[in-house]
Write a protein that binds this DNA or RNA. Sequence first.
RNA 1: GCGGGCGUGGCGAAACUGGUAGACGCAACGGACUUAAAAUCCGUAGGGCCGCAAGGCCUGUGCGGGUUCGAUUCCCGCCGCCCGCACCA
Length: 853
Amino acid sequence: MSRYNFRENEAKWQRVWDERGCFEAREDAARPKYYVLEMFPYPSGKLHVGHVRNYTMGDLVARYRRARGFNVLHPMGWDAFGLPAENAAIASNVHPAVWTRENIATMRTQLQQMGISYDWSREIATCHPEYYRHEQKMFLDFLAAGLAYRKESWVNWDPVENTVLANEQVIDGRGWRSGALVEKRLLAQWFLRITEFSDELLGALKSLDRWPDRVRLMQEKWIGRSEGARVLFGLAGRDETIEVFTTRPDTLYGASFVALSPHHPLAQSLAAADPALTEFIAECDRLGTSEAVIEAAEKRGYRTALEAVHPLDPARRVPVYVANFVLMEYGTGAIFGCPAHDQRDLDFARKYGLPVVPVVLPAGADPAQFAVGDTAYVDDGTIFNSDFMDGLSVADAKRAVADRLEQSRRGTRTIAYRLRDWGVSRQRYWGCPIPIIHCPDCGVVPVPEDDLPVELPQDVTFDRPGNPLDRHPTWKHVACPYCNSPSTRETDTFDTFFESSWYFLRFCSARAPIAFSRAAAEYWMPVDQYIGGVEHAVLHLLYSRFFMRALKRCGYLDLDEPFAGLFTQGMVCHQTYQTEGGEWLFPEEVAANASGALTDSAGHPVIAGRLEKMSKSKKNVVGLETIVDTYGADTARLYLLSDSPPERDLEWTDAGIEGIWRYVNRLWRMVSEPAATLPAPGTAIPATLPPALDMLRRQLHKTVAAVTEDLDKFRFNRAVARIRELTNALESLPAGDAAAGAVLREGLEATTKLIGPMMPHLAEEMWQELGHSGLVAETAWPTADADLARDAQVTIAVQVNGKLRGTIDLPRDAQTGHVEEAALALPAVSRLLDGRPPRKIVVVPNRIVSVVA
RNA sequence: GCGGGCGUGGCGAAACUGGUAGACGCAACGGACUUAAAAUCCGUAGGGCCGCAAGGCCUGUGCGGGUUCGAUUCCCGCCGCCCGCACCA
């Protein structure tokens, strides 16, 4: 029995597509455009099957949209800057540029072998000066527009690696690589003013109706808008005031302390004259900033000598603390504490023996009796113990107190956001140099545009920790472009999220001498369908939304949102294996012995572990080469699309891929065996067909309609199931006359077109076998005949008292009276009615008859 | 703690807006072909019960209630798992 020869065919069709330039996109105002993009990868080495799931999905969308007549842009590139390249340089003495280039070459070949329909003429790698020079220009534009600035900021500092770590790189208070306890350190850093757009970024989420709710919700929470008030507390015996932020100004009369962040200017100035406070603040700084550390940390305060004057009642005084839980970065860096109605304030008050005065009375509680114990009362109620607010609801009291504060100029309504500005400085080599020069006379000055790009020097060493740019003998020493004084370059590089925040724009005109041609961007943007992992929900996906707005403000283009549609795909998982000693094993190192127990190649017992996301570290990866060599790209592609819904995790199993391989061969036989006996392409199907053929033909049109809808809605697994149903039906079609041949041909051709976006090589081979000279890649998507896509005959379920008792076959849209009659005539129904008339009959047309006995 | 999601056969799953639960597939079992195996083809299958059989009955979508002629789907209350955020004032 002949097997489908994927080895020859896949290479052949890839060559044909390439030679014809099938996937090269050109702007064409006459056709609707469709921009489909998968999140570009970091070139970390080799692809495994887990990596290619989203490329397969993206390719399905791209090919499907082309077939539907869209002008499709489907590009690919490399997010090529990043720390792993430097780690490789340190570990094996290979230059990051070389390591990156080699990985790109490997991965590009792998993607090409998968037959993904990219427009390779637009390929980009972000580590090339031709790419990053444009973001240096953007940065200078941002700087001029006030969207970039430099400030001192408290950062996570790894004392072993001598570098700043992102919050995500701090695990349990320790550096993820060094394991050293992370310190807080005050460093001058470059920031992008993403908070300028907090409200816009939040508000526009509503318009992103083709984004997953989950991602929108995550961004909403991340931006974290809170309505409240800034309130001024005076200081007894001093001219200064403390401004606090609160969302509960209605509880002001319950205030029993004010607390400052250790980094609050007032705390800092007090510390200058108070060694004990200095020591307290230093202790706070020794703690890391990771959530785990904060969670475990005790809430502690240092009582200063100051007394705050209550803004609503000058006679009232409360003590001022410096407290380790108050963040300088949120609100005003100072709070007032109302222990009765805030759990954290309550804990603090109990610890330091401060009063707990309830001011919100729960419904039905007795004001004379109500007291707060160990649990703060945070819900709604009626205000009491609060002078002019007494008797008001919480919401009304918030309004009343805000009015009062604003009249007396002791406070203002305000909105606080959780979102912080984006720190983009990294003390690393393998990134885009920040185009800034530090001049002893002129200060911090931008590199003039004519001097761009600031290129990374090639001759660097990684034999010592720290940033190679900083210790390069010549690179950083330059003359100030304005006064010519000996100056130094900024040696920090950009966070690599900088590159990924605009690469989708570069693809629109990848070889343009400027960042992107405005006309090209206006034609292609926004990305119609973006596909990637949910792990970027608040990082890349938020930064990119910010970048669009920042670029708009700088006059680059006139568009707010980069990604009109977003799909977040699930992971590919695989069983993990460990030796008894805890060493991870690759799946191919594990085998079952005669008694069925798992062993490694030496016969030692192996423990089968959890199903986990494929990752190199746990070795539960299946190499892409192995699969493509054994089964071909199409088989791997279909496997990644069938069975599991695309947003859910998928388990990779040997049995699963075998099953798809069998199906590939079935399809191939189904076309190649009868090919010679089929009527010529284009042979008309007789107007009237025998019932069996008519039914098959209807199923075919139903399948086309259903698969089309499924692909539109990203229900790829269901589309595959429907195509397989059609395959089953076509296979059981008895060989026969010319009419049967014509129906079979129509069915095979439709099947070929339907699997085209999923298994493009096989589809081309089938198409050719069916006698066509063109390419499926250039053939229009099949259309379903609406009349044929509906059954003439329907099966209607008959229930008695809610239980299924039989079915009746009737012509579609039969009259209700006839349907009732037919239902009541069923023996099972009349038996249950036992001669009594039914109490009620519900008829749902073409679906069900429900008889109530 | 707050927010969100999920729970259906041995397994992955399907079921359109409340209308025949388990499509499609994996694994399994029985059979055909074969010296044999692989491949391929045919068949069986949620669980239970009755029947020689045709067929019939009961039960079943995490658990307990509710609404409805009818609930995997809607509502209320639990249980379990997963994800995000977390001293945010």
